[in-house]
Write a protein that binds this DNA or RNA. Structure first.
Length: 729
DNA sequence: GACCTGCTGCGGAGTG
């Protein structure tokens, strides 16, 4: 392994020497042989700034350095910003090797694109959407320009796994191999990714038809030290009028203390909170007559503002703290920061891991602070608040992050019908015309839509014919119909994802605001909106409106609502630490405490309530006229139980994984649950039939109802998990 | 109480 780098081209070795590198990193050495061999896919899993990009490009460029013509390497990125970064980072190496690098996305320079068009060679850096546009508009050029393609590399692969866009990408790669006549001898795919859990499952997500083996390379020295603290805050019920110090104000005071003078990232989970924290912190700077060093960063801000802040972080000339959403989670080049702060609980352990990887300079420890506030309890407090579920979830996630190498895996049971419809139109637009059986082979049998069977595929084609998306010629070939022509010729066609649809929420004659519909909404369901509790009385899909009425009952829980997809494993860890009454982590013979006094106090409030209500043994609890169910399972299972109960006529809703059933007694609910015998339970598809609004993805509105229900059911519900759970009560 | 990502070709104004 020591002399592994000698296998690289001598010019590449010279470049390495010129960088002043005394040796290559472990993942870079391990990647040389498999990439040079061109006989296998490669998955490189390592944390941010571990040198993944070089691990691929050093051997890959060694292979293509003497290639006379044709593009040798196709690099695919989920972000335009990452393509621009990569273009810059490759400059010195590609100059030395005399290899052309061409960034190709919607905003990249036309001049460089034209040059590539006339003399295709070297490396192309592209987004999936631009690749789609090239395949549809210029597949003839693609065929000749890529005839000599040696590698396809996908950056930030974890950002694609399990998503519509990820399925789109897999379909594009398969179509490219088909176009180039390389189905029998596939083009090696190299995936670069952050540290992933269940690594052995990832190759199936990189090449679903397994037509090439995959070599997994992971960073074994990810044992870098981690310093973690959870700080608790109590939000007072009644604010002192003269001294309005709520929990968020106290959090800002601490942020100011932790962060001033250094480089830090503060993740705040919503654009709203990001803005309000940044504003308060900027005020503090002004009050102290020091220059402001706190700035917001999220998707609704202009490109200029965002890039300015990224540059400032990278240059490390002035102390800078970014208050951000997941926009600074992916690998945009901002260097390493002193520490990462998470305000409110993160949504998944994989994103927490990714955020944490942003800190830890020069091999130093990663520092993570988690600031969690809970409401002061009153006699009206809901059960969910009394259980301090946000804090418990945060503690559980830290334990899983440190104690196990587990991260949420992708859901592979999905159908991705919306993207399949898109790909049917795209393939027909690319080829002009194609037979139905060829289309099925290309997309489903050999391509990535392997969950879709022939019968469903046929139903989809028939429906697309009826709606003028496609037409069948007399010789049997499928061509674009009127609507299909119109859709696919507009530039908005190339992306398979959409910005979520906003529904107006109306109570009586008053509009309360808009709610993005990206999670389950049913008539009869209780939701929290604008800090109040509402019951959904009607949903009008045409007018994009949800009608609600005031819901009776106590105060709504602070932490709850839908939208999040907390995993079974996280909820079970929460249950475990509540049963044990201890969240500390055992290291050697010691137990490490990572919570401050307030957080510790809140934890014991939770444990006391948990024990008083006999929740270690009971899954049901009645308080007044409300019955609660505690499944301690992930949101997919919890949503399924809620939908089954609504079907039985109950007024049910779920908050933070706890199901709340109004106007019910424990005995009624128990007997209803016992009647839900596994053998008479319906399928996910049947359950989806009662959901009035199933249009989630971009092309869902063009799907037949039957497939819409199959797709929605697979995404939102899990009957088997409910069956298993029913046996335990 | 979510969050994020991307796409074209053309015409016209302005600049060197």
């Amino acid at each position: 392994m020591i002399n592994e780098h000698e296998k690289l081209d001598i010019r590449v070795q010279r470049w390495i020497f010129k960088q002043g590198w005394t040796s290559l990193r472990e993942i870079q050495c391990c990647a040389i042989e498999p990439i040079l061999s061109q006989k296998t896919d490669v998955l490189i899993s390592a944390s941010t700034a571990a040198g993944k990009t070089e691990a691929f490009f050093l051997p890959a460029l060694s292979t293509v350095v003497d290639q006379e013509d044709g593009i040798g390497i196709l690099y695919i990125s989920p972000l335009k910003a990452l393509i621009n970064d990569q273009d810059r980072r490759l400059e010195s190496l590609s100059d030395l090797l005399d290899i052309t690098v061409t960034p190709w996305h919607g905003d990249s320079p036309k001049g460089r694109k034209n040059k590539l068009k006339s003399s295709p060679s070297g490396v192309v850096l592209i987004t999936p959407e631009s690749l789609e546009s090239l395949l549809i508009r210029d597949s003839g050029w693609m065929k000749s320009a890529f005839y000599n393609l040696k590698y396809i590399v996908i950056d930030e692969f974890h950002a694609f796994i399990g998503t519509e866009r990820g399925h789109h990408l897999l379909s594009l790669l398969h179509r490219l191999e088909h176009l180039l006549g390389r189905l029998k001898e596939p083009i090696p795919r190299v995936a670069l990714s952050a540290t992933l859990g269940e690594l052995e499952k990832v190759p199936s997500s990189l090449r679903p038809n397994h037509s090439m083996p995959c070599k997994i390379i992971k960073d074994s020295r990810s044992t870098s030290t981690l310093k973690v603290q959870v700080k608790g805050y109590v939000n007072p019920v009644k604010l002192d009028e003269n001294l309005p110090i709520d929990a968020e104000y106290k959090i800002c005071q601490d942020l100011y203390r932790f962060c001033r003078g250094g480089n830090h990232l503060v993740f705040a989970n919503s654009r709203n909170r990001t803005e309000s924290l940044a504003a308060t912190l900027a005020d503090f700077c002004e009050d102290n007559t020091v220059p402001n060093e706190f700035f917001p960063h999220h998707g609704s801000l202009s490109k200029d503002l965002r890039e300015g802040l990224e540059k400032r972080l990278q240059q490390e000339q002035y102390p800078t703290t970014a208050i951000c959403t997941m926009t600074l989670e992916l690998g945009i080049d901002i260097g390493k920061v002193n520490s990462v702060v998470q305000v409110t609980s993160p949504h998944s352990i994989s994103s927490l891991r990714q955020r944490m990887g942003r800190s830890g300079r020069r091999g130093g420890p990663s520092i993570l602070r988690m600031l969690i506030s809970e409401d002061e309890l009153t006699k009206d407090s809901s059960v969910i608040d009394k259980l301090r579920l946000e804090l418990i979830q945060s503690l559980a996630m830290i334990r899983l992050l440190i104690g196990s190498k587990w991260y949420e895996p992708a859901d592979t049971s999905l159908y991705h019908f919306s993207t399949l419809l898109h790909q049917i139109l795209a393939v027909i637009a690319q080829w002009g015309g194609i037979r139905a059986d060829q289309l099925f082979n290309l997309l489903c049998k050999e391509g990535p839509f392997q969950n879709v069977n022939g019968e469903d595929f046929k139903a989809l084609l028939v429906h697309m014919g009826r709606t003028e998306l496609i037409t069948q010629l007399e010789n049997g070939e499928l061509v674009l119909g009127l609507l299909g022509e119109k859709l696919s010729s507009h530039y908005s066609f190339y992306a398979v994802f959409k910005t979520p649809e906003e529904y107006r929420v109306i109570s009586g004659a008053k509009t309360l605001g808009t709610l993005p519909i990206d999670s389950l909404v049913l008539v009869g369901q209780n939701i929290v909106f604008g800090g109040k509790r509402w019951k959904v009385s009607d949903i009008d899909s045409d007018k994009k409106t949800i009608y609600v009425k005031h819901a009776k009952g106590g105060k709504p829980p602070k932490f709850g609502g839908g939208g999040m997809h907390v995993h079974d494993v996280v909820r079970q860890e929460m249950f475990k630490i509540l049963v044990e009454g201890d969240y500390r982590i055992a290291v050697g013979g010691n137990k490490i405490d990572f919570a401050d006094v307030t957080a510790n106090g809140l934890f014991h409030e939770s444990v006391n309530f948990f024990r008083d209500a006999n929740l270690p043994n009971e899954r049901l609890l009645q308080v007044g006229s409300i019955t609660y169910i505690f499944p301690w399972l992930g949101d997919k299972t919890v949503n399924t139980i809620v939908a089954l109960l609504i079907r039985e006529g109950y007024e049910a809703g779920a908050y933070a994984g706890v199901i709340e059933i109004e106007k019910s007694t424990l005995e009624e609910v128990r007997s209803s649950l016992l009647k839900l015998k596994p053998e008479i339970l319906m399928s996910e598809t049947e359950l989806a039939l009662q959901v009035p609004e199933k249009h989630i993805e971009k092309f869902d509105e063009l799907l037949p109802d039957s497939l819409l229900s199959i797709g929605y059911g697979a995404k939102a519900f899990d009957i088997n998990a409910v069956n298993s759970w029913l046996k335990t009560i």
